[in-house]
């Protein structure tokens, strides 16, 4: 598994797209930190950008790479290794390559300019976001047969998670604002990995505001660390579940 991952990493880190992605992230974070004297404000700006770019690049790049390597996958299947090993090896390889781009592009600047609990939270949620969207990319790839459909589906998932979903939630809130919606809201948040990552950062940046909420459930959720535990666990579920489904499909898939 790790052998496959190793060679995939060696392959990807030389790819132009990943280098461009690293440079893009680095340019964004450096520009923000250089032009803004206030570190917290910088972290806020990076968060905003990160929530859009990281899922997009993770899911689209992973999908593209997966499809470009179809014949290579066939070759691997003809070797004496199990399909599970192949898929997990690919996942580890692709996700760690994208993650290292994220690490170099975002984490290093944050560590240098804004080393703080908020900074670390930003890194953690970015990393989890990368993993969950690579995992979703694998699901996309095993569900579809050709590249165009795969990338189309990947883009749709991204668009849905980053924009449509929250819009629907807001609409839902407008319609049912008279009802007690605390539980429902927490449940809805769990349905979107981007929201989960956002909540993690909110708990750092806006804890003062979040503490102002009267409802007992929100108080518990925001105030006692339960929110952090919840978000982390759900984020892990978002990483593991799509990958497991992809694995189930891949084991029975004709190449």
């Amino acid at each position: 598994m790790l052998k496959i991952a190793k060679y995939i990493i060696l392959d990807i880190i030389r790819s132009k797209v990943i280098i461009a992605y690293t440079l893009l992230l680095m340019a964004i974070s450096l520009t923000i930190f250089m032009t803004d004297a206030d570190v917290t404000k910088g972290l806020v700006s990076i968060t905003t950008v990160m929530m859009i770019i990281v899922p997009l690049v993770s899911i689209v790049y992973a999908t593209t790479y997966y499809f470009n390597a179809t014949e290579f996958t066939e070759l691997l299947v003809s070797q004496p290794i199990s399909r599970q090993t192949i898929l997990l090896g690919k996942f580890i390889g692709i996700s760690s390559a994208i993650m290292s781009a994220f690490f170099v592009g975002i984490c290093i600047p944050v560590l240098i300019f804004a080393f703080s609990v908020t900074g670390l939270t930003l890194m953690a949620s970015g990393a989890l976001l990368t993993l969950s969207f690579v995992s979703l990319a694998f699901l996309t790839c095993t569900l579809t047969r050709d590249k165009a459909k795969g990338i189309g589906l990947a883009l749709m998932i991204w668009f849905y998670c980053s924009i449509i979903f929250d819009g629907l939630v807001l609409l839902f809130l407008f319609c049912f604002s008279d009802y007690p919606l605390e539980k429902v809201m927490i449940f809805l948040t769990a349905l979107n990995p981007i929201d989960l990552a956002r909540i993690l950062i909110l708990l750092q940046l806006d804890i003062s505001a979040l503490m102002g909420y009267t409802g007992a459930l929100y108080q518990q959720f925001f105030g006692s660390g339960q929110g952090i535990v919840f978000s982390l666990i759900m984020q892990l579920v978002w990483i593991v579940t799509p990958l497991l489904i992809a694995l189930r499909i891949f084991k029975k898939k004709d190449l």
Binding site: I8, L10, D11, S15, A69, T70, E71
Partner: peptide
């Protein structure tokens, strides 16, 4: 030996 050999680009 496959019909078309296609391997990761940067390998």
């Amino acid at each position: 030996m496959p019909q078309i050999g296609h391997y990761p680009d940067n390998m």
